[in-house]
């Protein structure tokens, strides 16, 4: 079976010379949910921006279900951006249209979807995140948690094969955090989730990888990884106070 996502030997340096990725290798099987962990500045967001060809120019290769990400090829890149749905960290960056419905329609409209089919996509995506009754609202009038959910819907409307979430649980209250987890788990897609929220990683993702200083330094079942105190400390990862790694191991 072709991998949902296959990254080989990916390197990248920003124009100011800052090297953010130093040869990343990572493969995700279809339907897998994987957490991407790592300290601030490790290169997680940089890696995410490579998955749909927004950043490029270094060595290495990224493939989405066998289709290579080739930045020059406009048609291929549109298909890549359909397959890879990226939910950014700040929902205000992602919700740039005047109303919720128009925002959710933006992606599929760029793919050429029109008319009733477009309406259907919007309804479907908003239903999936439980935000249908807010379709005509202004993003600014939604709570943060609601905006995050709409941000997920904007991507779902493109019917992606891989959902990439950059710190989805940040700034959410416990109830919104749980609701979002339920939404993510209900989706039949491959998930790559960047997070600093280790219990969230454990809850949602059977497998985790650690990125540090531009390299993948660990790749293991999430419970095992979180229980390995030395390895965690080496990469500046800390469990919340009172969170017992041995208890989670058995879950």
């Amino acid at each position: 079976m072709t991998a949902a996502l296959k990254i080989t030997g990916l390197t990248f340096a920003y124009p100011d010379g800052r090297e953010a990725l130093h040869g990343v290798d990572l493969t995700l099987a279809p339907g897998e949910r994987v957490a991407l962990l790592g300290p601030n500045g490790a290169g997680k967001t940089t890696l995410v921006l490579h998955l749909n060809g927004i950043l490029h120019g270094g060595a290495g290769r990224v493939e989405i279900s066998g289709l290579p990400v080739t930045p020059g090829d406009r048609k291929a890149i549109t298909e890549i951006r359909r397959r890879v749905g990226v939910v950014f960290q700040d929902p205000d960056d992602q919700l740039f249209m005047p109303t919720v419905a128009e925002d959710v329609a933006f992606g599929p409209a760029n793919l050429g979807v029109r008319g009733d089919e477009l309406d259907h996509r919007v309804t479907e995506a908003l239903t999936a995140v439980g935000m249908l009754e807010h379709r005509d609202q202004i993003p600014h009038h939604l709570s943060f948690g609601q905006r995050r959910r709409v941000a997920v819907a904007t991507v779902l409307a493109m019917r992606p094969e891989i959902l990439v979430l950059d710190e989805p649980s940040s700034n959410l209250d416990p109830a919104s955090r749980r609701e979002l987890a339920e939404i993510i788990m209900s989706l039949p897609v491959t998930v790559l989730m960047v997070t600093h929220d280790l219990p969230y990683a454990l809850e949602l993702c059977p497998r985790s990888v650690i990125l540090d200083a531009g390299r993948i330094v660990a790749d293991a079942p999430t419970g095992e990884l979180l229980a390995d105190g030395d390895r965690m400390a080496a990469h500046r990862l800390e469990l919340p106070f009172g969170f017992d790694p041995s208890a989670i191991h058995r879950r």
Binding site: D93, F96, F106, N110
Partner: peptide, 23 residues
């Protein structure tokens, strides 16, 4: 910087220089 991030978010959803026309 927000403008730049918004632009990236647009690109990620298939923006290629044309906004959907008014409804």
């Amino acid at each position: 910087e927000r403008g730049e991030r918004v632009y990236l978010a647009m690109l990620s959803r298939g923006y290629s220089g044309r906004m959907p026309s008014g409804s």
